[in-house]
């Protein structure tokens, strides 16, 4: 799992690539937390464009990112969601809590 980010005018874009499973999720959650703490974004875009596989561990990652942004009084959107990941997120009904932009 690879993570890159870009921060500009309090807009943070976090781009993920590779397989997001339980093995990858723990380290990723810590990295996302740290990235948000350093940049204090008003809005975060979580870009899943490079994610080749995602299971329910990804749901926990998105929910955690959402809670962190709520705590910062900011907003979160998940963007560029591949089909397989989107099936997982939809099954969880996550679109009710988090903005999903295809």
């Amino acid at each position: 799992m690879e993570m890159r980010y870009r921060a500009e005018n309090r807009l943070l874009t976090i781009s993920l690539a590779g397989e997001l499973d339980h093995h990858a999720a723990k380290g990723l959650m810590d990295s996302i937390d740290r990235c948000m703490e350093q940049n204090l974004p008003a809005r975060t875009l979580l870009d899943l464009g490079g994610v080749t596989f995602m299971d329910s561990s990804g749901i926990a990652v998105v929910m955690r990112a959402k809670r962190r942004m709520d705590a910062l009084s900011g907003s979160l959107a998940v963007v560029n969601i591949p089909k397989q990941a989107s099936r997982v997120l939809e099954t969880a009904g996550l679109d009710r809590y988090v903005d999903m932009l295809v």
């Binding site: 339980h22 999720a25 329910s56 929910m63 099954t91």
Partner: peptide
């Protein structure tokens, strides 16, 4: 805990 979503069985069931 916070690391898991509680959706594992639901996903197995729906998929």
């Amino acid at each position: 805990g916070e690391e898991r979503s509680g959706m594992g069985f639901t996903i197995m069931e729906s998929f």
